[in-house]
Design a protein around this nucleic acid. Structure first.
Ligand SMILES: NC(=O)c1ccc[n+]([C@@H]2O[C@H](COP(=O)([O-])OP(=O)(O)OC[C@H]3O[C@@H](n4cnc5c(N)ncnc54)[C@H](O)[C@@H]3O)[C@@H](O)[C@H]2O)c1
Ligand SMILES: NC(=O)c1ccc[n+]([C@@H]2O[C@H](COP(=O)([O-])OP(=O)(O)OC[C@H]3O[C@@H](n4cnc5c(N)ncnc54)[C@H](O)[C@@H]3O)[C@@H](O)[C@H]2O)c1
Lengths: 235, 235
DNA sequence: ATCCCTTTGTGAACGTATGCACAAAGTGAG
DNA sequence: CTCACTTTGTGCATACGTTCACAAAGGGAT
């Protein structure tokens, strides 16, 4: 291997790695709070629930921040991962659909903890509009575009019924939003350059049911299946 | 303790495929409701937001249920996928931690729609215990084991603070639960044979932030990377 | 300075997933 | 029947992801 400076500009981090970085970050933050100064790949991997070789390979994509024979400096690694994930800047998030779920999300403290700030709440229901939740006023959905632009919102969380999701999606994309987190159980179609991630309770349960059923099958003499698998990264 | 994942198995459906089956099912259900009798892989793939070759390969793992020149029978395919996922039986689900999120989950109608039935709610807070939510009484966490066994709960949803999650997890596993859906931002450690899936808002936002930051970098002359990617299956 | 111990970073082998491209299989018209 | 047309199911190439295993690097003791 040729040792070169351009290594740091090789910014092609695999998607599977990106999905695990927040996990490492969380484990590291816990360690920092407990006063741990350095950590080995073995220990960090254990805390994050992954294989240590995988962890080392993941971190190697960010650069060479470890010290052989010692491990990684916790604070420094927190900084490097945070920077890579873009958490050293402040992200304004809007939540659309302030029903059961939207309310829970708006009240969720874990949001703010890492660079994310809930900057706007929207709903179509006149009875909900004007409510005060977590120090924010719920705006009418008609104000969507204006408020998003005024407050510099760059990430939108959709928590409306499925029927409204695509329309909300189209509208926020039209004003330049390119990152969407969708809780509605529907497939959003978006132009290239827009990232959609989805959280779908129903799908998770169905996947669990699939494996659960298969465990039961075992008793009736079916083939013994692989088990104990935790879900991995999303690509 | 090396975990072996035997691949050579007859009914071995790839994990990536399993994760997409619920998507197909949802699309098919919508079509059935609109009176569509048959569908081509092309159309179904479009509705589910995947590549049609991938869809055909996924379905081929279940069997050969299509008709060349025609497509798939919608109702029949719904039945086959439902059966494969184990949705033809009834799953009793318990929710632990009836706070903001737990309440939203308990009130969520989409649960029941597909074989899942919320059968028990638990909380440690005396002010919450005894509340009536969605027709269910919130039980004290001390009753966890007894109620789970009595009502035949096989899937547990954890919506407690992170600090309580591992303990709840250990307790439900001790009474035979092997499927857990975890909303708490913590890595659960479980014995082999137990499936844990996690839903983590914070991780999703951080992944979005990573890509969002990268989009901004483009202006400063960084390499233009592939975008527009939607998240894939979790393995 | 030398040796021993620990731990990183990565080459290489293997496993899994994706998507193209096409033969095979089916429909229906004449 | 044959022919034209549609669409499935899959072989194959390629890309991506995981894990093992070990040389190289660093720390510290003597
Ligand atoms: N509650 C859950 O646990 C849960 C779980 C998984 C998925 N989901 C999904 O999340 C979404 C929200 O769930 P919920 O339980 O909060 O539903 P909900 O009905 O309680 O809330 C939906 C809110 O969206 C608002 N709304 C409707 N149309 C709108 C529009 N065009 N613009 C802006 N706001 C609009 C409604 O006024 C309502 O306040 C649904 O798609 C649901 O399927 C919910
Ligand atoms: N609210 C959200 O939008 C959101 C988003 C992502 C993740 N989460 C996570 O989901 C979990 C719940 O979030 P929330 O906002 O509902 O919090 P919450 O504080 O509103 O609710 C937590 C509930 O759990 C109960 N509880 C605490 N210890 C318990 C125990 N040992 N046994 C049983 N019940 C116990 C509490 O009494 C409370 O009712 C947290 O881990 C949170 O980080 C929440």
């Amino acid at each position: 291997m040729i040792r070169r400076l351009p290594q740091s500009r090789d910014r092609g981090i695999p998607e599977a790695t990106v999905a695990r970085l927040p996990l490492y970050l969380r484990a590291l933050t816990g360690m920092a709070e407990r006063g741990v100064a350095t950590v080995s790949s073995e220990d960090l991997a254990l805390a994050a629930g992954v294989n240590s070789a995988k962890l080392r390979k993941d971190l190697s994509h960010l650069g060479s921040y470890g010290t052989r024979g010692v491990g990684y400096d916790v604070e420094y690694l927190i900084y490097q991962i945070s920077r890579e994930l873009g958490l050293t800047q402040d992200w304004a998030v809007a939540i659309v659909g302030i029903g059961n779920l939207g309310r829970a999300l708006a009240n969720y403290g874990g949001f703010v903890s890492r660079g994310f700030r809930v900057a706007a709440l929207f709903d179509a229901n006149p009875e909900v509009v004007g409510d005060h939740i977590a120090g924010l006023n719920v705006e009418h959905i008609d104000e969507l575009e204006a408020v998003i632009e005024r407050r510099g919102v760059s990430i939108v969380v959709i928590a409306t019924p499925a029927a409204a999701a695509q329309q909300i999606c189209d509208r926020v994309i039209a004003v330049g939003v390119t990152s969407i987190l969708n809780f509605a159980p529907t497939v959003l179609s978006v132009p290239e350059g827009v990232d959609v991630r989805k959280v779908d309770l129903s799908i998770e349960l169905q996947i669990l049911a699939f494996h659960e059923q298969r465990k039961g099958d075992r008793e009736s003499g079916g083939p013994v299946m692989a088990e104990g698998l935790q879900q991995g990264a999303s690509a």
